[in-house]
Amino acid sequence: HHGSGALAALHADGPHAGLPVTRSDARVLIFNDWEERKRSEPWLRLDMSDKAIFRRYPHLR
């Protein structure tokens, strides 16, 4: 199991509170979210491209 239990660094406060600090933090969040959702949506594709990251977390651009 590759990303399970990996912890992402999140901004503690300010405008980005609760959001990932780096792209690799964002990838951890996206992976964990996908892993949760694919139980009920097995067709869901995992997209951890930069484009997917920016779409979801525009502050990382």
Rank of each mutant, 00 (worst) to 15 (best):
H1K: 12
H1E: 09
H2S: 12
H2P: 12
G3W: 12
G3M: 13
G5Y: 10
G5K: 11
A6N: 13
L7A: 09
L7Y: 11
A8K: 06
A8C: 09
A8D: 03
A8V: 14
A9N: 15
A9Q: 11
H11E: 04
H11Q: 03
G14R: 04
P15E: 06
H16P: 03
A17D: 03
A17L: 06
A17Q: 10
A17P: 03
A17G: 04
G18T: 04
G18R: 05
G18H: 05
G18K: 06
L19I: 02
L19H: 02
L19P: 02
P20N: 12
V21E: 06
V21I: 14
V21C: 15
T22H: 08
T22M: 04
T22W: 08
T22C: 10
R23C: 14
R23V: 15
R23D: 08
R23T: 11
S24E: 15
S24Y: 12
R27V: 06
R27P: 02
R27Y: 06
R27F: 03
R27E: 07
L29W: 03
L29C: 07
I30P: 03
I30S: 00
I30R: 07
F31G: 01
N32C: 11
D33K: 06
W34T: 04
W34L: 00
W34P: 00
E36P: 01
E36T: 10
R37C: 00
R37E: 03
R37W: 02
R37A: 09
K38E: 02
K38G: 04
K38A: 07
R39S: 12
R39K: 14
R39N: 13
R39D: 13
S40Y: 15
S40L: 09
E41S: 07
P42T: 05
P42D: 02
P42S: 04
P42E: 03
W43Y: 08
W43M: 07
W43S: 08
L44S: 08
R45F: 08
D47A: 02
D47G: 02
M48V: 12
M48H: 08
S49M: 01
D50R: 06
D50E: 09
K51T: 12
K51G: 08
A52D: 04
A52Q: 07
A52N: 10
F54E: 07
R55K: 11
R55Y: 09
R55M: 13
R55P: 01
R56K: 14
Y57N: 01
Y57P: 15
P58V: 03
P58W: 03
P58F: 00
H59W: 02
L60F: 05
R61G: 06
